[in-house]
Amino acid sequence: MLRMIANRLATAILSLAILITIVFFMTHATPGGPAFSILGQKATPQAVQQLNARLGLAAPLWQQYLLWWWHLLQGRLGYSYLLNRPVTQLVGDYMMNTLALYVGAILLSLVLSIGIGLVQGVTYGRWPARLIGALQLSLYALPTFFVGTMFILYFGVKWGVLPTGGITNLRLEQPGLLDYGRHLALPVLTIGLLGVSGLSRYFGTSVHEELGKDYVRTALAKGLTFRAVLFKHVLRNALRPLVTILGLAFPGIFAGSVLVETVFNYPGLGYLLWRSALSQDYPVISAIVLLIGALTVIGNLLADLVNGLLDPRERYE
């Protein structure tokens, strides 16, 4: 187990290093460099030169690259051009909101996917499974921003049962937990549904595959009830690949949440990314891109480790 942890950790660190390098070259691919996005496209060459000197952008590329690493290792990500606040502070504020959204959405899609997948796996080849399959396909083709907009139109505007956006009611003096929950409901539902189509399909297939295996026949033959076999043996085995898929689904969930946070004006990382992109606030953009990449790498690492805990065979691969 220790050896596997060390192995996976080394891979993750290597991925992170490559990622950091890629993001460095992405930010320095800006035509004219960041100076233009601060001063505007019509900046005079003198002004650009002065600013470049001040920001350390006049140095040769390899020096800037080393400096970039040096600053990263110290946790210095620079200042937002737009808000003139340290990027780490800014990103930290928004990240907590995004995490709340994520945890809610992932829990929701896990619960739904396991339920739906069990039904689909057990009834494989018959109409319930076919119906579920058709629904999954439709759900997969529905863009999150369309679903979110429709939710706002119905729940918020037409029926008026849930708030249309934001994170708390600004008119309340002390927004309680209930108010947060009401604002979280629609975004969580939208992102959660986005995850369900793929996850439940995958889970349904693996339940079906597990049901056809010898150990199921043996368990049934020795007199266990179908329910006991399904929930004690099949569920555990079918859940294992789900962990990996969840790790891999992370970037997709984030991409979806950029759109969903924008739809609901929810102050999370995706919303911040969008605002910064519209105003070309590069330090913030690159910090978020880096953070998302790092979260994905860590997500995959955790998925591997959880797999190792669940299945001893994984530890020796």
């Binding site: 991925s15 890629i22 992405m26 984030f254 950029v258 990314l273 969008w274 891109v289 994905t296 790498v297």
Partner: peptide, 11 residues
């Protein structure tokens, strides 16, 4: 692949 396509696109 650790970077979602949409994020790179926005960038």
């Amino acid at each position: 692949l650790a970077l979602p396509g949409l994020v790179v696109l926005i960038f």
